[in-house]
Design a protein around this nucleic acid. Structure first.
Lengths: 349, 349
DNA sequence: ATTAGCACTTTGAATAAAAGAGTGCCAAAA
DNA sequence: TTTTGGCACTCTTTTATTCAAAGTGCTAAT
């Protein structure tokens, strides 16, 4: 796809800035990319690009910097879509290992992704409607301590250890486990809180410390429903040049990652039904310094989730987008194939 | 305890530097602490302190900075041992909640500790000899997926999801779980790898996908034995002034936290039988910029573990030491009391 | 034993000057 | 009409220089 001159120049500006985090001037562009136009011509084009709002100056005689709009145009029309071979190999070596759970595959994938892009990877917790409780266990680990273990149909394990005042009869525990599995198995996690509340009065027929058990279960189920996203590669952010002499900026970025409003926004994106990745540039939670790329992953019969790459506005969109597209596509294939192998008797969910 | 003049001055130097991260001169000392000696007197004392190796100059006419040795002297003889009330309240409110596991109590404690000191908290994984497997479960979460869940006597839960090629008969799983619990229950975690290896030939009498099950168990047990320390409050490091204009330094610090040789060294400390905290100043893994304070915590009948505070050499040793001492003492009492309540039939471990 | 006083050192902040990198515009060349 | 060389202008960055602060160590007086 041969680009016209204007697009070529814009592409170079964006790529130079992404690489060096430094405003770009006409002469630099020629030197760096061996362009055959004169610097005056480039300046004229730049002038036009600025009029279109695609690039900006940092001061009256500075070089140009891509605007948010410029980045968007770059992502949609100019980027190379080149997938790094390293990613292919790394990912393949994960997927070849057959014994990993969904969680583990996603985790390893994100670690690669982060390492390659110097961005943070975020995996959304699965949609509450898709995930169900598969099993409850109560394990007595000492005379007065019980650990409750909850496994979902997706292999996610949550646990809660609690202390009971009196010694407990092992048979009580067994019958209590039976009760809980009977009543709670296959319950979508968002309904768990209500179900356990309803179960409260019955519980005391089964176990002496019913109140403590109830409280522990309730607390865990509350935690279940929130709190379900995982961040990987936080420290990769250190490798981005905008933070080299600005620890405060980096600190703000780290704090953002603990910030709920940001995460809520990402959750929105993850629920979109777009097949393409959703790219948000300088508009994440009203923060002009942050961009995100969110893509869906289909987990075969286990519903779907999403992976988000998050980093400074000056991120390598081509690399990040290409990597994420490639990765999600491969994961989609992988999980679909798993299902086929699994047996045709269909999921229990 | 009335200090002599020399000690008073040293104390002020250390405290000033800890607070401002700035070399201290004789006049500053007078201004800041309203000392009644003349600046010349202080200079003479400083000269002596420098001869003793307790303080240093950064250049020929600069103020003084504590040396590693100076910090050590400060910790041993000069610090106030003042415990912040806030810590007392925060800790109490955690310990009043009765339904927390050991892991959770340690976690919350460390979060407070880190927040108060701007240091990273590290909880050592429990001594391998003390921790035993309490229960194994295999939960079939889909026709071709099984999640194995392992609970230790300390309430630590490890899990592993793996994919089996063929549909599995539920009764196979049940008998397999029985086998595993029979053979592995109460096994110290460091012996698990050997035990499962020994079990390998028997396994195939119990379950069709014996090879996959074996591999999943083996992998998990290997992970069990390493990997058992938890870091809290990493991001508190941002609040230390030495990193304000030096992102690289901070990055190095973060990298250190992922570094095995450092962690090995901390593990050494955690195994010391000193009742006092172990303070390492500018000698952690050969790094002059890092200090650690390690203290033991007795977990009642569950053996013991240790908490380490880690941060820049210029840390607030008084605050950190006092907080850690107070905290470990309270935790010791708390866990001892738990045991008493627990029932006198003794632990199963 | 202390301290006032002083000469000396080093850093850091402020200022000024020079160098660089860049722009926009105009008139000439293609 | 499009492209380009040339040039005046702008703003930032670098370098140099100066100057004030903060500090020390030493000596002589208290």
């Amino acid at each position: 796809m041969a680009l016209n001159r204007s697009d070529t120049i814009l592409k170079h500006i964006v790529e130079y800035f992404i690489k060096h985090a430094q405003p770009v001037g006409s002469q630099t562009l020629i030197d760096e990319y061996h362009l055959s136009y004169s610097s005056a011509t480039i300046r004229n084009e730049m002038f036009a690009l600025e009029k279109q709002g695609l690039i900006e100056k940092t001061h009256s005689s500075s070089g140009r910097v891509p605007s948010a709009q410029g980045y968007r145009y770059y992502c949609n029309h100019l980027r190379d879509k080149s997938v790094d071979d390293e990613l292919k190999y790394s990912l393949q070596s994960i997927l070849d290992e057959k014994i990993h759970s969904i969680e583990e595959v996603l985790k390893s994938s994100c670690e690669i992704l982060s390492q390659m892009t110097s961005l943070v990877s975020v995996v959304m917790g699965p949609d509450e409607k898709e995930e169900r409780l598969a099993n409850v266990q109560l394990v007595q680990i000492s005379p007065n301590t019980i650990t409750a273990v909850f496994v979902t149909n997706r292999g996610y394990v949550e646990n809660k250890t609690f202390i009971i005042e009196k010694g407990v009869n092992p048979s009580e525990i067994v019958s209590c486990v039976t009760l809980l599995n009977d009543r709670l198995k296959d319950t979508p996690i968002y309904q768990l809180v209500d179900k356990i509340k309803a179960l409260k009065p019955i519980l005391n027929d089964y176990i002496v410390s019913h109140d403590l058990v109830y409280q522990a279960l309730l607390e865990t189920f509350l935690r279940f429903a929130s709190d379900r996203l995982s961040l990987y590669g936080r420290e990769e952010l250190f490798n981005n040049p905008e933070f080299k002499n600005d620890t405060d900026k980096l600190h703000r970025m780290f704090r953002l990652l603990n910030d709920n409003s940001l995460l809520k926004e990402m959750e929105e994106d993850s629920k979109s039904d777009s097949e393409e990745p959703i790219v948000k540039i300088g508009e994440v939670d009203g923060n002009p310094d942050v961009s995100t790329i969110t893509a869906k992953v289909r987990l075969g019969s286990e519903g779907e989730t999403s992976i988000t790459l998050l980093g400074p506005t000056r991120m390598d969109y081509d690399k990040a987008l290409s990597a994420l597209e490639y990765l999600t596509e491969e994961l989609n294939k992988y999980f679909a194939k798993l299902d086929d192998k699994g047996g045709k008797n269909g999921g229990d969910a």
